[in-house]
Simulated scan of single mutants.
Amino acid sequence: MAATTTIEVPHLGGIKVGYHLSGGRYDGSKSTVVLINSMCTTVSLYREQFSNTKLTDVTNLLAIEPLGHGATSAKSEHWTYWDTATMALQVMDKLGIQKAFALGTSQGGWIVVRMALLAPERILGIIPLGTSMDSESADSRTKNCWDPFPIIKPFYEMWSSATETPNFAIDERWCGLVATLGFGNGVPPETVEFWKSTVRDVYRGDEGRRKARMACICLLERDSLLLRLSDVKCPVYWLQGTEDVPFGQTVPAEQIKLFAASKEAKLIPVQGGAHYLNATNPIEVADAILEMVEKHR
């Protein structure tokens, strides 16, 4: 469910970061791939990747739970996706990992781009999955992207409180959204129940309420990366499912062209793929990881 291993990093006055590392320790003879999970999920989103020996035989897989997610907690209540990117780089420091590839699902996609912008000498390549590089803009709505404000803002308002809420339990509707939106049609009932249980466990009590609230704020108010994409020099393999509901097909096809200085930037459509591609289409995702690591390590 949430990560069972944590590590302390200094950003924001101190963050306890939840993470999972394949093999339990860093193997310097292998390339490393950092994995950043989607909204209100945990390192468990990458179960398929951790169980794939073709991946773990040749790479260290390091899944890191962003601020507001899983076992990660910060002294500061306020943070942005830039803070999660800095935090992830500091986790690499603590584990002795100088360079890595980085893969991110949905919100993880724009986090790994921030990592590549902040530390271009350390990020060897990025693999965004089911994402967009824009803010939640009006322009994106004209290109078949979702409008999260009517869905998410009522939860933000419900979770905003001037007093502590020690008995807070997250809304069942939110658990259902997390469990179904990213996995597409035909998601198995056991998958739905697993993620409902995970969300309930992570977001409980006053700390859980504050984490969920700030995760919503970060998503709704994030800054666009469009004017920064030409500064990304590393390879970019962007995978987008043909059944991706939040961000569709138009935006990825336009935005991949903005990685003009990348050593290799390509959009890989995944037929029938839903939003959380690493879960719904693990074979295609593994193939992309192995290709990038082989070509650009």
Rank of each mutant, 00 (worst) to 15 (best):
G70H: 00
R122M: 11
G182Q: 09
D287N: 10
A138H: 03
L239S: 02
R210T: 14
M115P: 12
C234H: 00
D201V: 00
V187F: 00
G125K: 01
V9T: 12
I64D: 02
S31A: 15
P269C: 04
F247C: 02
D57F: 03
I268Y: 05
S51N: 15
K30Q: 08
G176C: 08
V178E: 07
I283P: 08
K266C: 11
D139M: 04
P148G: 06
G14P: 04
L219A: 06
Y237N: 01
R200N: 10
G13Q: 11
F183G: 01
L35E: 01
D83G: 05
R122W: 05
G23D: 06
L229H: 06
N60W: 09
K30G: 10
I97F: 06
M158Y: 02
T32L: 03
G176S: 14
T280L: 09
Y237S: 05
G68E: 13
G18W: 03
K153W: 08
V192C: 00
A2Q: 14
G24N: 11
T250S: 13
T163C: 15
S197L: 13
E207A: 12
S31C: 11
Q90N: 10
C216E: 06
E254M: 12
F183W: 05
G18I: 15
T5K: 15
A2M: 11
F247L: 06
V270I: 15
K233R: 14
T4W: 02
T280R: 04
I152F: 14
G248H: 06
Q240W: 08
E136A: 05
L55E: 04
L219Q: 01
T191S: 13
R210P: 13
T198G: 01
N37R: 09
T191L: 03
R141A: 12
G205P: 12
T165D: 10
H275G: 13
N144F: 11
A3I: 13
A74I: 10
M115T: 04
G184I: 02
A286Y: 05
A274Y: 12
E291Q: 14
S22N: 06
L35C: 02
S132M: 15
S106K: 00
S76D: 12
R173C: 14
I283S: 08
